[in-house]
């Protein structure tokens, strides 16, 4: 079954196809939302909201991109709305808190998230979509509604800044942070 058929059946109310669609993509979208929000509760809310929105609007899916890309676009839109409504919270990116076991599966991953949240949002979002969600440049451009060249530029600058951040950390601190025993 291709994405067009899947979308058509979901729009027609096929519960089984909808269930499979949710199962296929839930973890990926939840991971993306968690990395963007750094809060599993908010991520779960946004993910659920994204799937509900996707179901409501799936009749508008035209098949120009993959259903996964389209879903990321819906989720990303939900996230941008959420972000707009947030009050400025404690910027965890600005200081170091001892890793809290319940919220960190890996020191390396957490360190990258910390660094990413010190970058401007567009760079962070492009990086997560491309490097972590593994969308193509074209798909990231579709999700973020920017030209492919802009995505390239954001990825380039994100990587440059990450290099600088980690290099400075290592120079100032104690050597590299490795994810021991991986």
């Amino acid at each position: 079954m291709n994405d067009n058929d899947r979308a058509r059946l979901i729009a027609a109310g096929d519960a089984e196809v909808l269930r499979a669609f949710v199962e296929d993509h839930y973890s990926s979208v939840l991971r993306f939302m968690r990395h963007l929000t750094r809060s599993i509760e908010d991520a779960e809310d946004l993910t659920q909201q994204a799937f509900l929105k996707a179901r409501e609007n799936i009749a508008g899916y035209h098949g120009g991109s993959s259903l996964r890309t389209w879903l990321h676009r819906v989720a990303f839109h939900e996230y941008t709305h959420w972000r707009r409504k947030q009050r400025p919270l404690l910027r965890l990116t600005q200081h170091e808190i001892a890793p809290e076991p319940g919220f960190q599966a890996c020191v390396e991953g957490a360190a990258l998230l910390d660094a990413l949240h010190r970058l401007p949002a567009p760079m962070r979002e492009a990086f997560l979509l491309f490097e972590v969600q593994e969308l193509t440049l074209e798909e990231v451009a579709t999700v973020m509604r920017v030209p492919k060249g802009t995505v390239k530029s954001r990825l380039h600058h994100a990587r440059l800044r990450l290099r600088t951040l980690f290099q400075e950390q290592e120079e100032t601190l104690y050597g590299t942070t490795a994810c021991e025993r991986t």
């Binding site: 973890s27 991953g109 998230l113």
Partner: peptide, 9 residues
Amino acid sequence: ALRAEEMPS
């Protein structure tokens, strides 16, 4: 490491 994070169903 971020990609490999396991998420609940």
